[in-house]
Design a protein around this nucleic acid. Structure first.
Lengths: 244, 244
DNA sequence: GCCGGGGTTTGACCACGGTCAAAACCGCGC
DNA sequence: GCGCGGTTTTGACCGTGGTCAAACCCCGGC
C-alpha cells in the first residue's frame, strides 16, 4: 500500500476503522488520513487459527481488525485460559502491551482475517503532529476500556441465562454498527469460546441456546443465530446495565 | 497550588502519581512536571461515601487518587450494581468517559480521600507540547486496561476460593508498590463490596475468610487482614494467570 | 454504663450450573 | 457413497455457592 493512495479508495477500505471514524466530530482531515495511512502500511492477511501476537511478545504495534474476527486471551501457567474479548472489524488490539513493553495476552484469529498494523513508533510521531489523531486514538482506547467494563458487568450477572442474553444482544449491537443484519448473527466463535468468555461451561451455553429457542426468542443452528423476539431478549437481560 | 511550586515539594506530594512515575524510563523532566502541575491544580478532598463523579455526568477530566481509596461501579436500571475497581493512590479514573463524552461509571470514596483533577482540555494542550507526557499518559491508560483484564481473569476463575485468594494477593502486591506493608492489609472496602467485585455472595466471602483463617493462611479481623503464609496463598491462587 | 444499628459471622437448606458420559450431528477427505 | 474427527447436543448426577434467617460483634450516641 503506497502513501499516495487516492483518498476515496482509502475511505472505502478503511472507512469503518476506529482510528479515523468519519462519523465523529473529532474526525480527521484528508491530510491527516494520508499521514496515518503512511504509518499503517502493513495489511496482514491471516488464516483461521493463526496467532497475530502471542502473550509475552515484545510490544511494538497496535492492530486494527479490517476483516474477519479474532479473540484475545490470557493463558495461565497451568494451561487455563480466559478469553478477554472478541474483535470485529474496526476494533483495536494490543494497547495493553504499552504498560510493560510486552503483550499481556494472545490475539488469534477465529476465521480468515485481515489486520492493520500500526507500528507504535510511527504512530507516536504521527500523533505528535496531529492533535486530532491523538485525541481520536485516546477515544478508541477509551472505547476498548469501556468494552471491557461491559464484559465485566456481564460476568458479574449471576444467572447464566442473563449472561448469554446479554452477550447475544451485544453482538447484535456490534453487528448493527458494522451495518450487518443485527438479527441474523453468524457467530465466528465456538461454543467453548463463548462459554469461556462468559465464565460458564460449554454444556450450559448449549443448553441455554436450546432453552431460548424453545422460548421462541432465537432460532439457533450452530453458528447461525437468528433473533426472533428482540423484546424477549431484552427482557432476559433484565435490569439493564447499559453502557457503550 | 501554584505552578511555581518547588520541584522537591512536588516530588514528595505527587511522587507516586501514575502520570509522572519517576521509576519509568519514560519519566518526565522537571520542565514537564511544571507544565503538568499547571494542569492539575485542583486537589479535591472528599469525605467517606462521597461521589467524585456520577455515572452519566458529562466528561470533563481525569482523576488521580492522591490519598485514600475509591471504588468505581456501574448501576443498572433496576438498581443492580457491578463494582469495576478499587482505586488506590496513584490510580487513574475516568478514562472511560472519553468515548461517549459521559462517564460510564460512578466513582465514590471508600474513606476520606484526596483526588487530583486533570481537566482534559488542559491535559490535551499539555500533551501536544510534551511527547513524553503523552506517552506516559498512554502507558497509564494501558495499565488501567490491563488491571481490568486481570479483574476479568479473576471473575473467570470458577472457584470462589481462588477468586478471593487472587484478590487478596493483588491487593498485597498493590500495597507493596505503595510501600505499605504487603502482609498487613487494611482493606478499605466492605465485605459486600468485595463480594460484588468478585461476583460472589457476601456470605461466601465471609465464609472463605473464615476458612482461610482456619487453614492458617490469613488472620482476619474485620477490615484488617494479615497474610501469614504467602506460599499457601499463592497455592490457593492455583494455575496462575499473572499479568501486570 | 446502656442501647441501637450497621456490618459481619454462622447455620440450614436447596437450586443452579458444573462435571462426567454418551449420543448426535456436521463437514471433510478419501 | 463411506468413515473419521471435531463440535454440539442431550442426559443423569452431584457439589459449590446462593438464599433466607438468626445471632453476633463492634462502635457510636446518649
Amino acid at each position: 500500500m503506497t502513501s499516495d493512495l487516492d483518498l476515496d479508495e482509502l475511505r472505502r477500505s478503511c472507512g469503518y476503522c476506529a482510528i479515523h471514524d468519519f462519523r465523529l466530530p473529532a474526525g480527521l482531515s484528508a491530510d491527516d488520513l494520508h499521514t496515518l495511512n503512511a504509518t499503517a502500511r502493513d495489511m496482514l492477511p491471516l488464516d483461521r487459527g493463526q496467532t497475530l501476537f502471542p502473550q509475552g511478545r515484545k510490544f511494538g504495534a497496535l492492530y486494527v481488525v479490517r476483516a474477519g474476527a479474532l479473540k484475545t486471551f490470557v493463558e495461565g501457567s497451568e494451561g487455563d485460559v480466559q478469553i478477554l474479548g472478541f474483535h470485529l472489524p474496526g476494533d483495536i488490539m494490543g494497547i495493553g502491551g504499552l504498560i510493560n513493553e510486552h503483550y499481556p495476552c494472545t490475539a488469534q484469529t477465529l476465521e480468515r482475517s485481515s489486520v492493520c498494523e500500526l507500528r507504535y513508533a510511527q504512530l507516536q510521531e504521527a500523533t505528535a503532529n496531529l492533535p486530532a489523531l491523538n485525541h481520536q486514538l485516546m477515544r478508541v482506547i477509551s472505547g476498548a476500556l469501556v468494552d471491557e467494563q461491559s464484559h465485566l458487568v456481564l460476568m458479574g450477572k449471576q444467572q447464566a441465562q442473563r449472561r448469554l442474553a446479554f452477550f447475544i444482544r451485544r453482538m447484535s449491537d456490534r453487528y448493527a454498527r458494522l451495518s450487518r443484519d443485527p438479527l441474523a448473527l453468524i457467530l465466528p466463535m465456538s461454543r467453548e469460546d463463548i462459554a469461556n468468555y462468559l465464565g460458564l461451561a460449554l454444556e450450559t451455553v448449549s443448553r441455554l441456546f436450546g432453552r431460548m429457542e424453545s422460548a421462541g426468542v432465537l432460532s439457533v443452528n450452530r453458528k447461525s443465530v437468528r433473533i426472533l423476539r428482540r423484546d424477549l431478549l431484552d427482557e432476559l437481560c433484565g435490569g439493564d446495565i447499559d453502557m457503550a
